[in-house]
């Protein structure tokens, strides 16, 4: 399986933030996603959208980063939505009952 470069890019739009996650979220880079979502979650955004249409792989630490970001966002009265997962990522989310 080809491994593609991992990237996390944030666009802030008023009270909302869109996080574009792309590439392969592997064990040696998943902390980048966790750190980003934790920071955004604590920044007081009303809505955080995690866009995953270009994410081709994620392991459990990355999934944990999404959960941690979600909890932090909720603690700060915000909402987080994960959108456009590929079939492989959707299957992972369903297996772990995160969707």
């Amino acid at each position: 399986m080809h491994e593609t470069p991992f990237a996390v890019n944030v666009e802030k739009r008023g009270d909302a933030a869109v996080v574009f996650v792309s590439g392969s979220c592997t064990m040696n880079v998943s902390k980048k996603l966790t750190d980003c979502l934790r920071e955004l979650g604590g920044a007081g955004h009303k809505l955080i959208v995690v866009e995953t249409s270009e994410l081709d792989f994620i392991e459990s630490s990355g999934l944990g980063g999404i959960v941690a970001g979600y909890l932090r966002t909720r603690m700060h009265k915000g909402e987080m939505r994960l959108v456009s997962p590929t079939p492989d990522i959707r299957r992972l989310l369903e297996m772990t009952r995160l969707v």
């Binding site: 392991e59 459990s60 999934l63 944990g64 980063g65 959960v67 941690a68 909890l71 992972l92 297996m95 772990t96 009952r97 995160l98």
Partner: peptide, 18 residues
């Protein structure tokens, strides 16, 4: 078991299950 309702919110513990 990370899929149990009481564990869903835990950031860790999904590796073995996967």
């Amino acid at each position: 078991d990370p899929t149990l309702p009481e564990n869903i919110d835990r950031p860790h513990g999904r590796g073995i299950m996967l």
